[in-house]
Structures are given as C-alpha cells and as structure tokens.
Design a protein around this nucleic acid. Structure first.
Lengths: 157, 157
DNA sequence: ATCATATAGTACGATATCGAATCAAACAAG
DNA sequence: CTTGTTTGATTCGATATCGTACTATATGAT
C-alpha cells in the first residue's frame, strides 16, 4: 500500500487549512452561543434572540419562511422557535392578509424590550473584547468571513 | 428622551463590528455543520464526527471529561455523544485502570474507517472551495480566528 | 480509620432540532 | 370550474442538548 492511499488530510495542505478554519469557526460559534445564552436567561436560545433581533433590524411583519431562509434553518425549526416566542408573548403571529396560508410576525413591546435589554447586557462584553482583539483585525476579517459565508451558502443544493 | 438613550448598537461602532463578525461566524458554522452532516448520513452529527476525528488526531485512550473540555460542551452532552458512538460500535469504552471512577475511550476499526471515509467524502468539497476563497485569505484569517477563539475561551467564567 | 469534600460519569427531564408526513390555500392548465 | 402541483405552515417522532440530581470512587484533613 502506498502512503498516498492513506486518507490523510495532511497531504492536502490546502484542505487542511480550510478544515482548520471551519473548525475554529465552529468553536467560536459554540463559545459565543454559550455566552449569549447565559446572558439571556429563561429558556431563551440564540435562535430566539436572533429572531427578535432580525425583526428589530429589518422590520417586523415578515413571514416565518422568510425568516427560516434568513437563518439557514429548516422551516420546522423556525416554526418551533416562533411558537416559543409567541408563548412568551414576545411576538404576535397574525394571518397574512395577502396569503391565506401564511402568517406575519410582529414584535410586541415586551419583545422589543427583551431584545434591547439583551443587547445592553452583552455589549459591554463585546466592547471589552474589541481592543484586545484589535479593531483593525476585525475590520480585516469581516469581509473575508462574508465572502466565505456567501460561498458556502451558494454551494448548498 | 435623548437619542443617545436608545439601545442602538449602531452608536457603538466597534461593538457593531464584533456583533457582525460573530453573526457571520454563526452562520458559517451552521452551514458547514449542515454540509458535514448531510455527508455523514445515518444519524451521525458533527459531534460524533468531531469525537472520532479528535481520537484519531490526538490519539485514543482519552477520558470523556477530557473530550468534553476539548469541545467546550457539558460533560452530559459528551456522555450522550459517546453513548451514541458506542451503540454504533465506533468506539469502545473501558474502565480506566488508573481511576476507578473513570473510563477510557478507544476507537474501533469501524470507527477509524468511518472517520477516514467521512474525510475522503468531504475533502473534495473543501478543496473545490479553496481556490475560490483564496488560499492567501485563508492563511490570513486562520491565525486571527485562533486569537479570537483563545480570547473568548479565556473569557469564560 | 473516619469523615468531608471533590471528581468522573450517568440518569432523567425539559426543551430544541429537524426530517417526513400532513393540511390548507394558491396557482396553473385545460 | 376541475384537477394537479406548488407553497406556507404545523404536527409528530426520533434524536440531541444540557442542567440538576445522583452514584461511586478518590483525595485530603485530622
């Protein structure tokens, strides 16, 4: 058996680089998720916060499917997340007047407040991290991450 | 009410940058996880693969707790993941001869093969992505991601 | 030796994730 | 209109995640 037949990613230097990068990204995502959720309390998850934040930033009155696509999650997952938010009265779901099958999602006052509180709670952690990480580095990395995200996104079947 | 009292992350330019970066990282992690798991089949998750890969790369005979720490997950989660791997006979769990409370995790032949197959299956996708993304950019981003990961990691309580 | 405390791991319960199946409404073709 | 297909959303079931509580062993102090 030749050495080159071994499934050894070390032999594909470039692939190794990408593997390592995606691995670091996975760990960072894991850590920041844990950090966020420890600040949110209740049973709120990253997805709950993400949905609220999305509605604040891009405006509410969106459909669940639209949100599922924005977050790259299956629509069943979004359905569940929205049900959790509705149960806590952080959003309202009303029938879509333009499509009898659909719904539209609106923030409640409590929903906006919870999102604002969460941001106020977390921002100091983020701000404290910035000078340590380096604002220049952050500025440099962000566009590259966007490029990678777009690329991965379009590689989806 | 003054405008500056609004909880608006736009007013903290630096924080916004970090938020956006972590957001992109979260989406990329999500996409690459989905990609990986679609290639793994069965009910195998990212964590299952990660555990097998860890054991191959750093050597087996490790303890569950050690692995939980390496992956930044609670030990109960690691316990569940390892139980899934053992049920599929991809690992063996034996009592730790040096600690009556503990166990040691060993790969089975099937476990090694599954990990190797997974890597062989995924590598072409990764390699195809590299020239598009740019090897230079990847080399530039990786150390910065490591720095961010280390920083987030040490910020954990 | 005894007892208190710490540590490795598991059991269990609440909730989350997500694919398959389902249902209702919209739409398209004739 | 009628029928077939597509689309928005939910239900259901299997599995995952993770906090709390628990068991068993180890360790440290006296």
């Amino acid at each position: 058996m030749k050495k080159s037949e071994l499934p050894d990613i070390q032999q594909n230097g470039g692939a190794q680089l990408m593997f390592d990068m995606l691995n670091e990204i996975g760990i960072i995502a894991q850590l920041s998720r844990t950090l966020l959720e420890s600040r949110l309390g209740d049973g709120l998850t990253q997805h709950h916060f993400g949905a609220l934040n999305h509605l604040v930033r891009l405006g509410d009155g969106r459909t669940p499917l639209e949100m599922a696509r924005a977050f790259q999650v299956p629509k069943t997952s979004m359905s569940h997340t929205l049900a959790g938010l509705e149960k806590r009265e952080l959003i309202r779901m009303v029938p879509n007047p333009e499509d009898g099958r659909g719904k539209l999602i609106y923030l409640t006052t409590a929903g906006r407040q919870l999102r604002d509180n969460a941001i106020n709670t977390i921002t100091p952690d983020i701000v404290a991290m910035l000078p340590q990480f380096g604002e220049e580095d952050a500025s440099a990395v962000l566009p590259l991450l966007r490029k990678l995200r777009v690329q991965l996104d379009s590689a989806r079947d």
